[in-house]
Amino acid sequence: MSPAIDCARALEMMQDWLRREVTAAHAAELEAHVSACTACRGHAEFESRFRDAIERATSRECCPAETRARLLAALEREREG
């Protein structure tokens, strides 16, 4: 049983935890801390809204068709030497 984590450590792990990039053991420690700490529940809410804003902005912007055609043509020229 590892010692309980403090708020500073919880804050450090929070964004990684939201992206499922912490070990199961660390996730359990963080979840235990957050369920007992009002301040860190607020932090988790804040971090989660921030993450959502970033994810939303991930433009599903595609490579434009004309660009794609020019790229393929450049590859073709390269192959033909």
Binding site: G42, F50, D52, A53, A57
Partner: peptide, 11 residues
């Protein structure tokens, strides 16, 4: 404190 403003920031 809850970061509501993040929802109003455009992409």
């Amino acid at each position: 404190p809850e970061g509501n403003f993040f929802e109003r920031v455009v992409d």
